[in-house]
Amino acid sequence: MSRTVVNAVVNGEPVEFLAGGGQSLLDALRDELRLTGSKEGCGTGDCGACSVIVDGRLVCACLMLAPEAEGKRIETIEGLADNGHLHPLQHQFLEHAALQCGFCTPGLLMASKALLDRNPDPTETEVRYWLAGNICRCTGYDKVVRAVMDAAADLRQEGKSK
Protein backbone atom coordinates (compact mmCIF):
# COMPACT_ATOMS: atom_id res chain seq x y z
CA MET A 1 0.00 0.00 0.00
CA SER A 2 1.43 3.32 -0.95
CA ARG A 3 1.46 6.03 1.63
CA THR A 4 2.00 9.68 0.99
CA VAL A 5 3.46 12.38 3.16
CA VAL A 6 0.88 14.89 4.36
CA ASN A 7 1.78 18.27 5.78
CA ALA A 8 -0.87 20.05 7.79
CA VAL A 9 -1.23 22.37 10.75
CA VAL A 10 -2.89 20.64 13.67
CA ASN A 11 -3.88 22.77 16.65
CA GLY A 12 -1.50 25.45 15.47
CA GLU A 13 1.52 23.17 15.10
CA PRO A 14 2.87 22.07 11.73
CA VAL A 15 2.79 18.30 11.48
CA GLU A 16 3.93 15.78 8.93
CA PHE A 17 2.55 12.28 8.75
CA LEU A 18 2.19 9.34 6.40
CA ALA A 19 -1.27 8.59 5.09
CA GLY A 20 -2.75 5.78 3.04
CA GLY A 21 -4.92 6.84 0.12
CA GLY A 22 -8.04 5.37 1.67
CA GLN A 23 -7.23 6.26 5.25
CA SER A 24 -9.62 8.62 6.99
CA LEU A 25 -8.43 11.78 8.66
CA LEU A 26 -9.80 10.31 11.88
CA ASP A 27 -7.57 7.26 11.63
CA ALA A 28 -4.60 9.48 10.83
CA LEU A 29 -5.28 11.71 13.83
CA ARG A 30 -5.73 8.77 16.15
CA ASP A 31 -3.21 6.26 14.83
CA GLU A 32 -0.47 8.39 13.26
CA LEU A 33 -0.59 11.53 15.44
CA ARG A 34 -1.95 9.72 18.53
CA LEU A 35 -4.53 12.44 19.02
CA THR A 36 -7.13 10.06 20.40
CA GLY A 37 -9.45 12.76 21.70
CA SER A 38 -11.47 12.56 18.49
CA LYS A 39 -13.57 9.42 18.80
CA GLU A 40 -15.03 6.94 16.37
CA GLY A 41 -18.64 6.22 17.22
CA CYS A 42 -19.78 5.10 13.78
CA GLY A 43 -17.24 5.78 11.04
CA THR A 44 -20.05 6.89 8.74
CA GLY A 45 -20.69 10.50 9.70
CA ASP A 46 -23.82 9.78 11.70
CA CYS A 47 -22.73 10.45 15.28
CA GLY A 48 -20.34 13.40 15.25
CA ALA A 49 -17.95 11.99 17.88
CA CYS A 50 -15.05 12.69 15.51
CA SER A 51 -16.00 16.31 14.80
CA VAL A 52 -13.01 18.51 14.00
CA ILE A 53 -12.68 21.89 12.38
CA VAL A 54 -10.83 22.02 9.06
CA ASP A 55 -10.03 25.45 7.64
CA GLY A 56 -12.83 26.86 9.77
CA ARG A 57 -15.44 24.28 8.72
CA LEU A 58 -16.86 21.67 11.03
CA VAL A 59 -16.48 18.20 9.55
CA CYS A 60 -16.54 14.58 10.60
CA ALA A 61 -12.94 13.42 10.51
CA CYS A 62 -14.20 9.96 9.55
CA LEU A 63 -15.63 11.38 6.32
CA MET A 64 -12.48 13.07 5.13
CA LEU A 65 -9.50 11.29 3.64
CA ALA A 66 -6.22 11.85 5.39
CA PRO A 67 -4.42 12.99 2.20
CA GLU A 68 -7.03 15.73 1.84
CA ALA A 69 -5.56 17.32 4.94
CA GLU A 70 -2.54 18.47 2.92
CA GLY A 71 -2.07 22.17 3.57
CA LYS A 72 -5.10 22.43 5.85
CA ARG A 73 -5.48 23.88 9.32
CA ILE A 74 -7.09 21.34 11.61
CA GLU A 75 -8.48 22.00 15.06
CA THR A 76 -9.16 19.06 17.38
CA ILE A 77 -10.31 18.76 20.97
CA GLU A 78 -6.68 18.60 22.10
CA GLY A 79 -6.28 22.21 20.98
CA LEU A 80 -9.43 23.67 22.47
CA ALA A 81 -7.95 24.65 25.79
CA ASP A 82 -5.48 27.50 25.50
CA ASN A 83 -2.20 26.61 27.19
CA GLY A 84 -4.01 24.76 29.93
CA HIS A 85 -6.80 27.32 30.27
CA LEU A 86 -10.14 25.79 29.54
CA HIS A 87 -12.29 27.29 26.80
CA PRO A 88 -15.57 28.71 28.14
CA LEU A 89 -17.36 25.79 26.48
CA GLN A 90 -15.23 23.28 28.37
CA HIS A 91 -15.81 25.20 31.56
CA GLN A 92 -19.58 25.34 31.09
CA PHE A 93 -19.82 21.66 30.15
CA LEU A 94 -18.22 20.88 33.49
CA GLU A 95 -20.31 23.39 35.44
CA HIS A 96 -23.56 22.07 33.96
CA ALA A 97 -22.61 18.39 34.21
CA ALA A 98 -23.29 18.34 30.48
CA LEU A 99 -21.53 15.02 30.12
CA GLN A 100 -21.98 11.62 31.64
CA CYS A 101 -19.78 9.07 29.90
CA GLY A 102 -17.88 11.80 28.08
CA PHE A 103 -17.35 9.88 24.83
CA CYS A 104 -19.35 12.23 22.62
CA THR A 105 -18.06 15.26 24.51
CA PRO A 106 -15.01 16.09 22.35
CA GLY A 107 -17.20 16.10 19.25
CA LEU A 108 -19.91 18.13 20.92
CA LEU A 109 -17.36 20.67 22.10
CA MET A 110 -15.81 21.08 18.67
CA ALA A 111 -19.23 21.38 17.04
CA SER A 112 -20.26 23.94 19.64
CA LYS A 113 -17.07 25.89 19.07
CA ALA A 114 -17.75 26.00 15.34
CA LEU A 115 -21.24 27.32 16.12
CA LEU A 116 -20.09 30.03 18.49
CA ASP A 117 -17.30 31.05 16.10
CA ARG A 118 -20.08 31.91 13.64
CA ASN A 119 -23.00 32.82 15.83
CA PRO A 120 -22.16 34.38 19.17
CA ASP A 121 -25.78 34.53 20.30
CA PRO A 122 -27.62 31.42 19.13
CA THR A 123 -31.17 30.58 20.16
CA GLU A 124 -31.94 27.26 21.79
CA THR A 125 -33.40 26.04 18.51
CA GLU A 126 -30.28 27.07 16.60
CA VAL A 127 -28.11 25.21 19.10
CA ARG A 128 -30.24 22.10 18.86
CA TYR A 129 -30.24 21.98 15.07
CA TRP A 130 -26.55 22.81 14.80
CA LEU A 131 -25.75 19.96 17.19
CA ALA A 132 -28.16 17.47 15.59
CA GLY A 133 -25.19 15.66 14.07
CA ASN A 134 -23.68 14.97 17.48
CA ILE A 135 -25.50 12.11 19.11
CA CYS A 136 -25.34 11.93 22.87
CA ARG A 137 -27.03 8.91 24.38
CA CYS A 138 -26.48 9.83 28.02
CA THR A 139 -27.73 13.33 28.70
CA GLY A 140 -30.91 13.87 26.71
CA TYR A 141 -29.14 17.08 25.52
CA ASP A 142 -30.78 19.35 28.12
CA LYS A 143 -27.60 20.22 29.99
CA VAL A 144 -25.55 20.26 26.80
CA VAL A 145 -27.77 22.93 25.27
CA ARG A 146 -27.73 24.98 28.47
CA ALA A 147 -23.94 24.74 28.64
CA VAL A 148 -23.55 25.96 25.07
CA MET A 149 -25.94 28.87 25.64
CA ASP A 150 -24.10 29.89 28.81
CA ALA A 151 -20.71 29.55 27.13
CA ALA A 152 -21.98 31.82 24.37
CA ALA A 153 -22.96 34.36 27.01
CA ASP A 154 -19.51 34.03 28.62
CA LEU A 155 -17.83 34.62 25.29
CA ARG A 156 -19.97 37.66 24.58
CA GLN A 157 -19.07 39.04 27.97
CA GLU A 158 -15.40 38.33 27.34
CA GLY A 159 -15.68 40.11 24.00
CA LYS A 160 -17.19 43.15 25.67
CA SER A 161 -14.55 43.38 28.34
CA LYS A 162 -11.76 43.23 25.77
Binding site: G45, G48, A132, G133, N134
Partner: peptide, 9 residues
Protein backbone atom coordinates in the same frame (compact mmCIF):
# COMPACT_ATOMS: atom_id res chain seq x y z
CA UNK B 1 -28.53 16.98 3.56
CA UNK B 2 -27.15 15.59 6.80
CA UNK B 3 -25.74 17.35 9.81
CA UNK B 4 -23.74 20.55 10.15
CA UNK B 5 -20.65 18.37 9.75
CA UNK B 6 -21.98 16.86 6.52
CA UNK B 7 -22.91 20.34 5.33
CA UNK B 8 -19.27 21.31 5.56
CA UNK B 9 -18.45 18.75 2.85
Amino acid sequence: IGSTQIQGR
